[in-house]
Design a protein around this nucleic acid. Structure first.
Lengths: 151, 151
DNA sequence: GAACGTCTTGAGAATTGTTCTCACAATCTC
DNA sequence: GAGATTGTGAGAACAATTCTCAAGACGTTC
C-alpha cells in the first residue's frame, strides 16, 4: 500500500501532477502534503488524522483539496459509518485491496485477497451486474468485526 | 428479500417482538410500521423514503425507533455516500445478499452471489481475518457503478 | 377500574461533519 | 513587474442526525 509498492515516490508525484493537470489543477504544496501523508499510511485516514499528520493545514483547505484530488482520480473517499469519512490513495496508485472495518472504534485496515478468489469473484459480479443492467466500475469488499485492539 | 422468503410475516413479527423484548423494548405500532415497510421493500431505504411509506411518522421518532431496532438486531443501517444512510432488515431476517450501488443517484439494489463463490470467499476472508488478528462478524460486498436508469 | 410510574411520541432545538463564501495571498502569464 | 487567475484560511452556512422536554399511551397495582 505504501510507496514501496511503486518504483519510488517520484513516480507517484509525477502521476498525480499529470492527473491534476488533466483537470486544470495545480499540484500545490498542500495537495502534495496530503498525498504524502496518504501514501505513508497503510490505512485510510479521517480528516482529523490528516490534519494532525500534515501540520498547518486548514480544515476547509483540506476538504477542498481532497475534493479536487478525488475529482482528478488521485484519492478515494470511503464512508463506513456515520461519523468521519476516510480517504486513501486511488487504487490504481496503490494496489487492489479490501478493508477490515472495526465496528467498535471504526478503524480501517487494508488487506488483500488471493488472486484466484479475486478473479472468480469478479466474474460472478460481472454476471450479477449484467442481469441487473448495471454498469459496474468496481467492487468493494469489506470485512466487518472487531480489530485486535477492541477484542 | 421480501416476506416471501419467510414462512409468513407472523414469523417475522414474532422474531422482532422477541428480539425487542430481549432488549427491554416494546414492539409498538410505529416500530411495526417501520419493519413492515422494510420487509415490503426489495432494497434498503433512506429515511425520507421510510417516512413517505409509513404515513404519519415523525422524523425524530423514525430515527429513534430505527436506532432501537438496530440495537436489537432487527434492522441494519448501511452508509454508502455522504448523504442519507439507508436501512434494511437484518440479514438473518431475510437472506444473505449484496448491494449494487449507483454512484450517480445513490440507489441501492440487492443481489445474490452463487453459493459456491460465496463459500470460497468466506474461507479466503476467514484466512485474512486470522492473519490480522481480526474477529470478523460478517462481510460486505458491494458493486459500485451506474444503475440502469442513470446509464 | 382509578392512580401511579414508565415508556413512547412529536416538535423543535442542538450538534456535528462537510461545504460554501469572501477577502487576501501566492502563482502564472505576458 | 503588472494584471489576471488560482489557492488559502477563517468562519458562516448547511444538512443529516441526535437530543430535549412536555404531553400522551400503556401496564401494573391496589
Amino acid at each position: 500500500m505504501s510507496t514501496e509498492s511503486r518504483a519510488n515516490s517520484d513516480d507517484l508525484h509525477a502521476t498525480v501532477t499529470h492527473r491534476l493537470r488533466h483537470d486544470d489543477q495545480r499540484y500545490t504544496p498542500q495537495r502534495r502534503a496530503l498525498v504524502e501523508v496518504l501514501a505513508a499510511s497503510d490505512a485510510p485516514l479521517t480528516l482529523p488524522q490528516l490534519l494532525e499528520r500534515s501540520q498547518g493545514l486548514a480544515q476547509s483547505s483540506a476538504y477542498r483539496n481532497l475534493a479536487v484530488l478525488e475529482r482528478a482520480g488521485v484519492v478515494h473517499r470511503i464512508v463506513t459509518t456515520v461519523d468521519h469519512a476516510r480517504w486513501e490513495l486511488a487504487e490504481d496508485l496503490t494496489e487492489h485491496h479490501h478493508h477490515l472495518i472495526c465496528r467498535d472504534c471504526g478503524t480501517v485496515a487494508d488487506f488483500i485477497v488471493p488472486n484466484e478468489i479475486e478473479r472468480r469473484l469478479d466474474s460472478a459480479l460481472a454476471d450479477a451486474a449484467l442481469v441487473a443492467g448495471f454498469d459496474a466500475t468496481h467492487h468493494r469488499l469489506d470485512l466487518v468485526g472487531l480489530c485486535a485492539d477492541c477484542r
